[in-house]
Design a protein around this nucleic acid. Structure first.
Lengths: 157, 157
DNA sequence: CGCATGTACTTGCAAACGCAACGATTGCAC
DNA sequence: GTGCAATCGTTGCGTTTGCAAGTACATGCG
Protein backbone atom coordinates (compact mmCIF):
# COMPACT_ATOMS: atom_id res chain seq x y z
CA UNK A 1 0.00 0.00 0.00
CA UNK A 2 2.29 2.75 1.21
CA UNK A 3 6.02 2.81 0.74
CA UNK A 4 6.20 2.52 4.48
CA UNK A 5 5.27 -1.10 4.35
CA UNK A 6 8.61 -2.02 2.90
CA UNK A 7 10.45 -0.22 5.63
CA UNK A 8 8.24 -1.81 8.20
CA UNK A 9 8.82 -5.20 6.73
CA UNK A 10 12.55 -4.69 6.80
CA UNK A 11 12.34 -3.43 10.33
CA UNK A 12 10.65 -6.50 11.70
CA UNK A 13 12.94 -7.98 14.26
CA UNK A 14 13.18 -11.15 16.23
CA UNK A 15 9.44 -11.59 16.67
CA UNK A 16 7.85 -11.11 13.26
CA UNK A 17 4.81 -13.10 14.23
CA UNK A 18 3.93 -10.98 17.20
CA UNK A 19 4.86 -7.90 15.25
CA UNK A 20 2.54 -8.84 12.42
CA UNK A 21 -0.22 -9.62 14.87
CA UNK A 22 0.20 -6.26 16.52
CA UNK A 23 0.26 -4.48 13.20
CA UNK A 24 -2.82 -6.25 11.96
CA UNK A 25 -4.71 -5.62 15.15
CA UNK A 26 -3.78 -1.96 15.13
CA UNK A 27 -4.91 -1.41 11.59
CA UNK A 28 -8.20 -3.21 11.98
CA UNK A 29 -8.90 -1.49 15.26
CA UNK A 30 -8.16 1.93 13.84
CA UNK A 31 -10.37 1.24 10.86
CA UNK A 32 -13.25 0.03 12.99
CA UNK A 33 -12.81 2.96 15.33
CA UNK A 34 -13.11 5.49 12.58
CA UNK A 35 -16.04 3.78 10.92
CA UNK A 36 -18.09 3.26 14.06
CA UNK A 37 -17.24 6.59 15.59
CA UNK A 38 -18.10 8.45 12.43
CA UNK A 39 -21.35 6.67 11.71
CA UNK A 40 -22.79 5.84 15.12
CA UNK A 41 -20.91 7.84 17.73
CA UNK A 42 -19.64 4.55 19.06
CA UNK A 43 -16.11 3.50 19.84
CA UNK A 44 -14.81 0.11 18.83
CA UNK A 45 -14.71 -1.05 22.39
CA UNK A 46 -18.19 0.19 23.09
CA UNK A 47 -19.39 -1.81 20.15
CA UNK A 48 -17.48 -4.79 21.38
CA UNK A 49 -19.08 -4.48 24.79
CA UNK A 50 -22.57 -4.28 23.36
CA UNK A 51 -21.85 -7.26 21.16
CA UNK A 52 -20.61 -9.37 24.04
CA UNK A 53 -23.44 -8.40 26.34
CA UNK A 54 -26.08 -8.93 23.71
CA UNK A 55 -24.79 -12.43 23.02
CA UNK A 56 -24.62 -13.17 26.70
CA UNK A 57 -28.21 -12.10 26.71
CA UNK A 58 -29.03 -14.49 23.89
CA UNK A 59 -29.86 -17.50 26.00
CA UNK A 60 -31.91 -16.21 28.86
CA UNK A 61 -30.75 -13.24 30.90
CA UNK A 62 -27.65 -11.15 31.33
CA UNK A 63 -25.34 -13.04 33.60
CA UNK A 64 -21.88 -11.63 33.17
CA UNK A 65 -20.20 -9.96 36.08
CA UNK A 66 -18.05 -6.89 35.61
CA UNK A 67 -15.11 -9.13 36.18
CA UNK A 68 -15.95 -11.34 33.26
CA UNK A 69 -16.93 -8.45 31.07
CA UNK A 70 -13.51 -6.96 31.64
CA UNK A 71 -11.90 -10.17 30.46
CA UNK A 72 -14.19 -10.36 27.48
CA UNK A 73 -13.43 -6.87 26.19
CA UNK A 74 -9.77 -7.11 27.24
CA UNK A 75 -9.82 -4.15 29.57
CA UNK A 76 -8.91 -3.45 33.16
CA UNK A 77 -11.66 -3.58 35.73
CA UNK A 78 -11.58 0.14 36.29
CA UNK A 79 -11.81 0.88 32.60
CA UNK A 80 -14.68 -1.56 32.35
CA UNK A 81 -16.51 0.18 35.15
CA UNK A 82 -16.28 3.48 33.34
CA UNK A 83 -17.09 1.97 29.98
CA UNK A 84 -20.25 0.43 31.37
CA UNK A 85 -21.07 3.65 33.17
CA UNK A 86 -20.73 5.60 29.97
CA UNK A 87 -23.06 3.34 28.05
CA UNK A 88 -25.43 3.23 30.97
CA UNK A 89 -25.57 7.01 31.00
CA UNK A 90 -26.52 6.88 27.36
CA UNK A 91 -29.33 4.50 28.15
CA UNK A 92 -27.82 1.63 26.21
CA UNK A 93 -27.17 -0.57 29.22
CA UNK A 94 -28.69 -1.20 32.60
CA UNK A 95 -26.93 -2.46 35.71
CA UNK A 96 -28.59 -4.63 38.24
CA UNK A 97 -27.24 -6.33 41.31
CA UNK A 98 -26.96 -10.07 41.54
CA UNK A 99 -29.69 -11.19 43.95
CA UNK A 100 -27.68 -13.98 45.54
CA UNK A 101 -24.37 -12.14 45.84
CA UNK A 102 -24.67 -8.42 46.23
CA UNK A 103 -21.04 -7.93 45.34
CA UNK A 104 -21.65 -9.04 41.80
CA UNK A 105 -23.21 -6.74 39.26
CA UNK A 106 -24.92 -7.88 36.10
CA UNK A 107 -25.49 -5.83 33.02
CA UNK A 108 -28.25 -5.89 30.47
CA UNK A 109 -28.48 -4.29 27.07
CA UNK A 110 -31.53 -2.09 26.83
CA UNK A 111 -33.79 -2.07 23.77
CA UNK A 112 -32.14 1.17 22.73
CA UNK A 113 -28.78 -0.53 23.02
CA UNK A 114 -29.91 -3.44 20.92
CA UNK A 115 -31.33 -1.10 18.33
CA UNK A 116 -28.09 0.83 18.10
CA UNK A 117 -26.15 -2.39 17.92
CA UNK A 118 -28.25 -3.71 15.07
CA UNK A 119 -27.86 -0.40 13.37
CA UNK A 120 -24.09 -0.39 13.80
CA UNK A 121 -23.46 -4.00 12.92
CA UNK A 122 -23.42 -3.52 9.15
CA UNK A 123 -20.97 -0.66 9.53
CA UNK A 124 -18.80 -2.78 11.73
CA UNK A 125 -18.86 -5.80 9.46
CA UNK A 126 -18.16 -3.75 6.37
CA UNK A 127 -15.27 -1.95 7.98
CA UNK A 128 -13.89 -5.23 9.23
CA UNK A 129 -14.00 -6.73 5.78
CA UNK A 130 -12.35 -3.66 4.31
CA UNK A 131 -9.57 -3.75 6.84
CA UNK A 132 -9.09 -7.47 6.38
CA UNK A 133 -8.92 -7.12 2.62
CA UNK A 134 -6.46 -4.27 2.83
CA UNK A 135 -4.30 -6.23 5.23
CA UNK A 136 -4.48 -9.31 3.07
CA UNK A 137 -2.58 -7.42 0.38
CA UNK A 138 0.33 -7.23 2.79
CA UNK A 139 2.47 -10.32 2.32
CA UNK A 140 3.56 -10.32 5.93
CA UNK A 141 0.00 -10.02 7.20
CA UNK A 142 -1.65 -12.38 4.76
CA UNK A 143 -1.24 -15.64 6.72
CA UNK A 144 -2.72 -14.06 9.81
CA UNK A 145 -5.58 -12.62 7.83
CA UNK A 146 -6.21 -16.04 6.42
CA UNK A 147 -6.38 -17.54 9.89
CA UNK A 148 -8.78 -14.89 11.02
CA UNK A 149 -11.05 -15.40 8.06
CA UNK A 150 -10.99 -19.12 8.52
CA UNK A 151 -12.17 -18.62 12.09
CA UNK A 152 -14.82 -16.23 10.90
CA UNK A 153 -16.13 -18.78 8.49
CA UNK A 154 -15.77 -21.88 10.62
CA UNK A 155 -17.26 -20.94 13.97
CA UNK A 156 -20.67 -20.01 12.70
CA UNK A 157 -22.36 -22.82 14.62
CA UNK B 1 -7.67 -21.11 32.34
CA UNK B 2 -10.28 -19.10 34.15
CA UNK B 3 -13.94 -19.87 34.18
CA UNK B 4 -14.35 -16.64 32.30
CA UNK B 5 -13.02 -18.20 29.16
CA UNK B 6 -16.11 -20.29 28.74
CA UNK B 7 -18.32 -17.28 29.02
CA UNK B 8 -16.14 -15.39 26.61
CA UNK B 9 -16.19 -18.22 24.17
CA UNK B 10 -19.92 -18.42 24.32
CA UNK B 11 -20.15 -14.68 23.93
CA UNK B 12 -18.23 -14.56 20.69
CA UNK B 13 -20.54 -13.17 18.12
CA UNK B 14 -20.56 -12.76 14.39
CA UNK B 15 -16.83 -12.11 14.04
CA UNK B 16 -15.07 -14.80 16.06
CA UNK B 17 -11.89 -14.40 14.07
CA UNK B 18 -11.48 -10.72 14.76
CA UNK B 19 -12.62 -11.28 18.29
CA UNK B 20 -10.00 -13.94 18.85
CA UNK B 21 -7.36 -11.74 17.30
CA UNK B 22 -8.30 -8.89 19.56
CA UNK B 23 -8.32 -11.12 22.60
CA UNK B 24 -4.96 -12.63 21.78
CA UNK B 25 -3.40 -9.27 21.12
CA UNK B 26 -4.75 -7.84 24.33
CA UNK B 27 -3.45 -10.66 26.44
CA UNK B 28 0.00 -10.68 24.91
CA UNK B 29 0.23 -6.93 25.09
CA UNK B 30 -0.80 -6.83 28.73
CA UNK B 31 1.68 -9.54 29.56
CA UNK B 32 4.53 -7.80 27.78
CA UNK B 33 3.57 -4.52 29.36
CA UNK B 34 3.76 -5.87 32.86
CA UNK B 35 6.99 -7.73 32.27
CA UNK B 36 8.85 -4.90 30.60
CA UNK B 37 7.51 -2.22 32.85
CA UNK B 38 8.37 -4.15 35.96
CA UNK B 39 11.85 -5.17 34.92
CA UNK B 40 13.12 -2.30 32.80
CA UNK B 41 10.83 0.67 33.34
CA UNK B 42 9.88 0.33 29.71
CA UNK B 43 6.44 0.17 28.16
CA UNK B 44 5.64 -2.34 25.45
CA UNK B 45 5.41 0.36 22.85
CA UNK B 46 8.65 1.93 23.92
CA UNK B 47 10.32 -1.43 23.52
CA UNK B 48 8.68 -1.82 20.15
CA UNK B 49 9.97 1.56 19.08
CA UNK B 50 13.51 0.77 20.14
CA UNK B 51 13.33 -2.55 18.37
CA UNK B 52 12.14 -1.02 15.12
CA UNK B 53 14.67 1.78 15.22
CA UNK B 54 17.53 -0.50 16.09
CA UNK B 55 16.71 -2.74 13.17
CA UNK B 56 16.35 0.21 10.88
CA UNK B 57 19.82 1.08 12.10
CA UNK B 58 21.12 -2.36 11.23
CA UNK B 59 22.18 -1.60 7.68
CA UNK B 60 23.86 1.76 7.82
CA UNK B 61 22.21 4.69 9.50
CA UNK B 62 18.83 5.57 10.94
CA UNK B 63 16.63 6.51 8.07
CA UNK B 64 13.05 6.29 9.24
CA UNK B 65 10.98 9.44 9.34
CA UNK B 66 8.50 10.06 12.12
CA UNK B 67 5.82 9.30 9.62
CA UNK B 68 7.11 5.83 9.00
CA UNK B 69 7.89 5.22 12.61
CA UNK B 70 4.28 5.99 13.43
CA UNK B 71 3.16 3.36 10.94
CA UNK B 72 5.65 0.88 12.26
CA UNK B 73 4.58 1.12 15.88
CA UNK B 74 0.91 1.53 14.94
CA UNK B 75 0.41 4.87 16.57
CA UNK B 76 -0.84 8.29 15.53
CA UNK B 77 1.73 10.87 14.52
CA UNK B 78 1.14 12.94 17.60
CA UNK B 79 1.56 9.98 19.91
CA UNK B 80 4.71 9.03 18.06
CA UNK B 81 6.12 12.51 18.52
CA UNK B 82 5.63 12.29 22.24
CA UNK B 83 6.85 8.73 22.44
CA UNK B 84 10.08 9.67 20.71
CA UNK B 85 10.38 12.79 22.85
CA UNK B 86 10.02 10.71 25.98
CA UNK B 87 12.74 8.29 24.99
CA UNK B 88 14.90 11.13 23.79
CA UNK B 89 14.58 12.79 27.18
CA UNK B 90 15.79 9.58 28.73
CA UNK B 91 18.80 9.62 26.46
CA UNK B 92 17.80 6.45 24.63
CA UNK B 93 17.21 8.13 21.28
CA UNK B 94 18.54 11.07 19.35
CA UNK B 95 16.72 13.09 16.73
CA UNK B 96 18.47 14.65 13.80
CA UNK B 97 17.10 16.50 10.83
CA UNK B 98 17.25 15.07 7.38
CA UNK B 99 19.91 17.05 5.51
CA UNK B 100 18.13 17.04 2.17
CA UNK B 101 14.64 17.71 3.47
CA UNK B 102 14.51 19.66 6.67
CA UNK B 103 10.92 18.68 7.25
CA UNK B 104 11.88 15.09 7.79
CA UNK B 105 13.31 13.99 11.10
CA UNK B 106 15.37 10.88 11.57
CA UNK B 107 15.90 9.08 14.79
CA UNK B 108 18.84 7.10 16.06
CA UNK B 109 19.09 4.78 18.99
CA UNK B 110 21.87 5.86 21.31
CA UNK B 111 24.33 3.39 22.83
CA UNK B 112 22.36 3.66 26.05
CA UNK B 113 19.23 2.80 24.15
CA UNK B 114 20.85 -0.19 22.52
CA UNK B 115 22.16 -1.36 25.86
CA UNK B 116 18.73 -1.12 27.43
CA UNK B 117 17.21 -2.88 24.47
CA UNK B 118 19.66 -5.75 24.68
CA UNK B 119 19.00 -5.92 28.36
CA UNK B 120 15.24 -5.96 27.89
CA UNK B 121 15.11 -8.35 24.97
CA UNK B 122 15.28 -11.55 27.04
CA UNK B 123 12.50 -10.28 29.26
CA UNK B 124 10.43 -9.46 26.23
CA UNK B 125 11.03 -12.77 24.51
CA UNK B 126 10.32 -14.77 27.64
CA UNK B 127 7.12 -12.88 28.32
CA UNK B 128 6.07 -13.33 24.73
CA UNK B 129 6.61 -17.05 24.90
CA UNK B 130 4.70 -17.26 28.15
CA UNK B 131 1.77 -15.34 26.75
CA UNK B 132 1.79 -17.39 23.59
CA UNK B 133 1.86 -20.65 25.50
CA UNK B 134 -0.93 -19.54 27.78
CA UNK B 135 -3.01 -18.46 24.82
CA UNK B 136 -2.29 -21.70 23.01
CA UNK B 137 -4.20 -23.54 25.71
CA UNK B 138 -7.30 -21.64 24.61
CA UNK B 139 -9.01 -23.62 21.90
CA UNK B 140 -10.35 -20.51 20.26
CA UNK B 141 -6.97 -18.82 20.23
CA UNK B 142 -4.87 -21.83 19.29
CA UNK B 143 -5.05 -21.49 15.50
CA UNK B 144 -3.99 -17.88 15.68
CA UNK B 145 -1.18 -18.71 18.04
CA UNK B 146 -0.05 -21.35 15.63
CA UNK B 147 0.03 -18.85 12.79
CA UNK B 148 2.02 -16.41 14.86
CA UNK B 149 4.56 -19.01 15.86
CA UNK B 150 4.90 -20.19 12.30
CA UNK B 151 5.74 -16.63 11.30
CA UNK B 152 8.17 -16.38 14.15
CA UNK B 153 9.96 -19.46 12.98
CA UNK B 154 9.75 -18.90 9.24
CA UNK B 155 10.79 -15.32 8.68
CA UNK B 156 14.18 -15.56 10.28
CA UNK B 157 15.94 -14.69 7.05
C1' DC C 1 11.66 36.32 -6.72
C1' DG C 2 7.01 35.98 -4.38
C1' DC C 3 2.94 33.35 -3.43
C1' DA C 4 -0.07 29.29 -3.26
C1' DT C 5 -0.38 24.35 -2.42
C1' DG C 6 1.08 20.38 -0.06
C1' DT C 7 3.83 17.67 3.24
C1' DA C 8 6.12 16.73 7.93
C1' DC C 9 6.23 17.34 12.56
C1' DT C 10 4.55 19.45 16.88
C1' DT C 11 1.23 21.26 20.40
C1' DG C 12 -3.67 22.21 22.75
C1' DC C 13 -7.19 19.76 24.43
C1' DA C 14 -10.40 16.37 25.94
C1' DA C 15 -11.19 11.39 26.40
C1' DA C 16 -9.73 6.79 27.94
C1' DC C 17 -6.61 3.80 30.20
C1' DG C 18 -4.03 1.17 34.19
C1' DC C 19 -2.50 0.96 38.86
C1' DA C 20 -3.23 1.42 43.47
C1' DA C 21 -6.25 2.65 47.27
C1' DC C 22 -10.86 2.36 48.97
C1' DG C 23 -15.65 0.89 50.47
C1' DA C 24 -18.92 -2.86 50.40
C1' DT C 25 -20.23 -7.74 50.75
C1' DT C 26 -19.38 -12.55 51.65
C1' DG C 27 -17.41 -16.76 53.90
C1' DC C 28 -15.01 -18.92 57.50
C1' DA C 29 -12.94 -19.46 62.11
C1' DC C 30 -13.36 -18.93 66.68
C1' DG D 1 -22.06 -13.39 67.27
C1' DT D 2 -17.55 -11.11 66.43
C1' DG D 3 -13.34 -10.77 63.86
C1' DC D 4 -10.44 -11.68 59.88
C1' DA D 5 -9.34 -12.76 55.15
C1' DA D 6 -10.90 -12.85 50.47
C1' DT D 7 -13.66 -11.09 46.58
C1' DC D 8 -16.06 -7.50 43.73
C1' DG D 9 -16.76 -3.18 42.06
C1' DT D 10 -15.68 1.88 42.16
C1' DT D 11 -12.85 6.14 42.56
C1' DG D 12 -8.27 9.14 42.72
C1' DC D 13 -4.43 10.06 40.12
C1' DG D 14 -1.02 10.34 36.69
C1' DT D 15 0.03 8.83 31.94
C1' DT D 16 -0.95 8.01 27.15
C1' DT D 17 -3.73 8.53 23.17
C1' DG D 18 -6.11 10.67 18.98
C1' DC D 19 -8.06 14.57 16.63
C1' DA D 20 -7.68 19.05 15.09
C1' DA D 21 -5.15 23.31 14.75
C1' DG D 22 -0.68 25.41 14.29
C1' DT D 23 4.20 26.00 12.59
C1' DA D 24 8.14 25.07 9.50
C1' DC D 25 9.83 23.51 5.20
C1' DA D 26 9.45 22.23 0.16
C1' DT D 27 7.63 22.44 -4.47
C1' DG D 28 5.27 24.46 -8.43
C1' DC D 29 3.45 28.52 -10.84
C1' DG D 30 3.21 33.31 -12.21
Amino acid sequence: MTATDDVVSAAVGAAPGWYALSLLHGRIDAHLERALQGAHELSAREYSLLEVLSHQHDGEGGHLRMNQVAEAVVLSQSATTRLVTRLEDRGLLARYLCPTDRRGIYTDVTPAGLALLDQARPTHDAALREALDAAGADARLAPLVESVERLNGAAVG
